[in-house]
């Protein structure tokens, strides 16, 4: 009785003021009961740590557009942009301030946030965040300009062998997927290469197209769209991308030991301490929302590769990534 009273009152926004005291006392008495059975009874927010219009932002908007559907959450999801410092600002604020009631979620980018939590003094790491589900995976690809003399990965590596450190690679900043892929390439080939960090994927792509750098790592989706200006030499993933680039081989096929550690995984997460009931509820319903035909169609037309991964697998994926990145980045610091 009391519970239903609070919920009806809380739904009514203008009444919020008068109910504050009441709901506060109720919330103190029975925090869990109200949460589990009626969740969600108001809109759910999701922090995106990148600016509006960026790849993560518009993909997040597409995959959450059906949240209000009764089949899924029954409540809309509202995107909150908190960009800055390569995502650190948004994630820092999320990890330190978000309430763990299930109404405050965030989008994650692996390996970005894991690498940052290793290199910088951040308030977040994989232990104080809980994945809900993964919606997309955008592998890094190796690109060169259309007029570049290199036609295969081997051409590039041969040149790099004769000209140590002279091959410049562009990428979207430090400790992001592109940088990880570059580090892996340098490690696997044993060659001296030069990385030029850019302020995001688009400027990095421009530098390759304009010939300011000799090569670059970029998102598969962006490279796919710009194929008339760049040549794609290799994909940094475990298998080829059959849908968009069936003819581009992986690094592994070309004899270099580079796995999928640099793949840019995007998904939804909640702060640590969110009740298991709420997490279960989200983990069950959110993936089906990602797989809705409408969402898939829109993602496809936006050229964004979808890879839905359930919560359990994301948890182990995060752990593997952290262990691997700690190793890779420790080499770098020497």
């Amino acid at each position: 009785m009391l519970k239903s009273l609070t919920t009806t009152l809380l739904k009514n926004r203008p009444l919020k003021l008068s109910v504050t005291a009441l709901s506060l006392s109720v919330a103190a008495l029975a925090p869990q009961i109200a949460a589990a059975e009626t969740f969600p009874d108001r809109p759910v927010s999701m922090v995106v740590s990148y600016s509006p219009g960026g790849a993560t932002d518009f993909q997040a908007r597409i995959v959450t557009m059906l949240a209000a559907n009764e089949k899924y959450l029954g409540q809309p999801m509202v995107i909150l942009n908190k960009p800055g410092a390569g995502g650190k600002i948004g994630w820092d604020a999320f990890a330190s301030k978000a309430k763990n009631n299930g109404y405050e979620l965030a989008a994650y980018n692996v390996p970005h946030f894991i690498a940052q939590s290793i290199v910088f003094k951040t308030k977040y790491n994989i232990n104080n965040l809980e994945p809900v589900a993964n919606w997309g995976a955008d592998p890094a690809v190796l690109i060169v300009g259309k007029d570049s003399p290199f036609n295969t990965l081997q051409d590039l590596l041969d040149y790099a062998k004769d000209n140590p450190a002279k091959v410049t690679f562009s990428g979207a900043g430090l400790y992001v997927g592109h940088h990880i892929a570059f580090l892996q390439l340098a490690k696997a080939s044993g060659l001296k290469l030069t990385y030029v960090p850019h302020k995001g994927g688009t400027p990095a792509m421009k530098s390759v197209m304009g010939g300011q750098v000799k090569a670059g790592f970029n998102n598969l989706s962006d490279a796919f769209r710009n194929q008339d200006r760049v040549k794609i030499l290799a994909v940094a993933d475990l298998q080829r991308n059959e849908k968009f680039l069936p003819n581009v081989p992986t690094f592994k096929e070309q004899g270099l030991d580079i796995d999928d550690s640099s793949v840019n995984f995007r998904g939804i997460m909640a702060p640590k301490g969110t009740s298991p009931e709420v997490l279960d509820y989200l983990a069950k319903r959110v993936p089906t929302m990602f797989e809705d035909a409408k969402t898939l169609k829109k993602m496809d037309s936006a050229g964004s590769p979808v890879r839905v991964i359930p919560r359990d697998e994301v948890i182990s994926m995060w752990k593997e990534r952290e262990a691997y990145l700690k190793d890779l980045l420790a080499d770098l610091k020497k």
């Binding site: 600016s51 509006p52 219009g53 932002d57 518009f58 688009t202 769209r225 200006r229 037309s301 936006a302």
Partner: peptide
């Protein structure tokens, strides 16, 4: 920012 607006509608610049 407009670039994002184009991509949402499935319009790929090029």
């Amino acid at each position: 920012v407009l670039l994002g607006g184009l991509l949402i509608h499935g319009l790929f610049p090029g």
